[in-house]
Simulated scan of single mutants.
Amino acid sequence: MTERADFSERDRRYLAVRNAMGQFPMDALIVAGHGSGFNRGNLRYLADVHMWEGDGLILIPLNGEPMHVQVTYASSSLPDYLWVEDFRREPDPQDAIIDAIREKGLTNGTIGIAGYKKIITVGALEKLTTAFPNAKFKDADMLLDKIRAVKSELEILQLKELWFMSQHAIERFVDVVSPEITQREAAAESSKIFRSAGSFTDLTVIQEGNFKGLPRDVSLKCDDWISFHLEICGETGHWSEINVVCAFKEPDKLEEKLIASEFRALQEIKKMAKPGVTLEDMEKIFLEVIRGDGWGLGQPEWHYSFHG
């Protein structure tokens, strides 16, 4: 993958964050991250680091330079040129944040926390609130989530690159699937594609018969259908999910009905897909067709469409 974020992209993101901070309003923002699939994106967005494990925090004052700290034993990929010049390592990252809050004169301010509900550790939050009893700590999860949901032209290019690579990877699975190889061997053929493209975090799930889970060292049966689900964190930190079903016999009546509903929904979406139409608009049409045919769906999420 070739489209990499540079300092101009970094500056665009920090400007958006500080504009939102001013509207909140808050004097500083603490951004929490952890080296796990759902919890490292904030730090990738603002420091261009890919965390494999451990905790990290970024302090962004409304006015002044940010500070980024990672736990001493954290393993991560840092950019060639640090996005946050003040980079530190500490056994307890919150200690460095406490020092920086004092250095920047923010001890009595309003401080938002992005990652308040699910990312920042209980110990870190307790230490911060104890150190600064006069500060007001606020939940700022949605502040950063909404900023990240609006993609720049660069991010759209990065997502397209990731999508084409993901499609290539799952097509490789389709090419090799046969009863002569195991689940793991088939999944490994797919993984060669995305690992050679710089992606080193993934989830692969195979479903065949009554089994659904991580690929096992058992031969594929190829006598009914096989579902292969692939999720990839790309080289640039974006995430893709793609699924394929390989069918080895004709669908039953219920499956035929679902396929027909989905194709009809797709045709309706294609009729309206043009510049200016939002994903939300297209999702409404999709749901009208699917629900009109009697199918039930789960509750929608605010930040993505056509999921689940």
Rank of each mutant, 00 (worst) to 15 (best):
M1N: 09
E3C: 09
R4Q: 10
D6Q: 11
D6V: 09
D11Q: 10
R12W: 07
R12C: 05
Y14N: 01
A16L: 13
N19Q: 14
A20Q: 02
G22H: 07
G33I: 00
N39G: 05
Y45G: 10
L46M: 11
H50M: 06
G54R: 10
I58V: 12
L59H: 02
I60A: 08
P61I: 05
G64V: 07
G64L: 04
Q70K: 01
A74Q: 03
S75C: 09
V84Q: 04
D86S: 07
R88A: 04
D92H: 15
P93M: 11
A100K: 10
I101C: 06
R102Q: 14
E103K: 13
I113F: 02
I113Q: 04
A114M: 09
G115C: 02
A124W: 06
P133S: 00
A135S: 15
L143G: 04
L144I: 08
L144T: 08
E155N: 12
E155R: 13
I156T: 10
K160T: 13
E161S: 11
W163Q: 12
W163S: 11
W163Y: 13
F164I: 08
H168M: 08
A169Y: 01
R172L: 04
F173P: 00
F173S: 05
V174A: 13
S178W: 12
Q183N: 08
A188M: 11
E189F: 08
S191M: 12
I193A: 00
F194N: 06
A197F: 14
L203D: 09
T204F: 05
G209H: 05
K212E: 09
D217R: 04
V218S: 03
L220I: 11
K221G: 07
W225S: 14
W225V: 01
W225C: 08
H238M: 07
A247H: 06
K249T: 01
D252I: 03
E255G: 12
K257N: 09
K257M: 03
L258F: 07
F263G: 01
L266G: 01
I269N: 00
I269T: 02
K274V: 09
V277L: 04
T278E: 08
E283P: 03
E283R: 06
I285R: 13
I285S: 02
L287D: 06
D293G: 09
G294N: 07
G294A: 02
F306K: 02
